[in-house]
């Protein structure tokens, strides 16, 4: 007799500076929606999404609890409380704004300090606005390499690469 599938709930954090598309990526993934209007997040928005089952895995059902954090300007105890218990983070960058590639601004070190074992996935978002998708900014690839994180390119607007990115995250969480 087959054992019932286990559902694992894993918390992940969306990190990135303002207006890189963190909320848009989660909304695209969870609700399949995209809204051009920019509404800044304050505090944290939490989304739940069951990932498609991964054949051959012990835990076939993986539920993501996505913590979509507001742009962090100052690292406060409240922010560290948000970080706690995360199994992974998606670090989002705006490919059209190289200024967003600075991870100091998003307190990635503090996140890793709170969650030393957490996995990271880097997302270069807004790829629909890039003239040439085949030559992404090299500094971003170097940055992802230095954190041993996979780098995926996404467009919350068109949906390109979004499912792939969350699938890569799922693999990372079940590793």
């Amino acid at each position: 007799m087959n054992k019932p599938a286990i559902t694992l709930s894993k918390k992940i954090c969306m990190l990135g500076t303002f207006s890189v598309g963190k909320t848009s990526l989660v909304r695209r993934f969870v609700h399949g929606l995209f809204d051009d209007r920019y509404l800044s997040t304050i505090g944290v928005q939490i989304y739940e999404k069951q990932l498609p089952s991964i054949p051959g895995r012990r835990a076939e059902n993986l539920k993501l609890i996505c913590w979509d954090l507001a742009n962090i300007e100052k690292l406060t105890p409240a922010i560290k409380n948000y970080f706690r218990g995360a199994s992974a983070a998606i670090v989002v960058f705006d490919l059209t704004r190289p200024a967003t590639f600075d991870v100091k601004d998003i307190h990635l070190d503090a996140f890793k300090q709170v969650n030393p074992l957490a996995g990271l996935v880097f997302a270069g978002n807004k790829i629909d606005l890039l003239p040439d998708v085949s030559s992404p900014p090299s500094e971003l690839a170097d940055l992802a390499g230095s954190h041993s994180a996979p780098l995926l390119f996404t467009s919350a607007k068109s949906g390109a690469g979004v499912a792939e990115m969350f699938a890569a995250l799922g693999q990372l969480l079940l590793r």
Partner: peptide, 14 residues
């Protein structure tokens, strides 16, 4: 607690 607050996944230690 986990049914009531699914968002607390990850806060088991806390």
């Amino acid at each position: 607690l986990w049914e009531c607050f699914p968002l607390l996944a990850g806060y088991e230690d806390v």
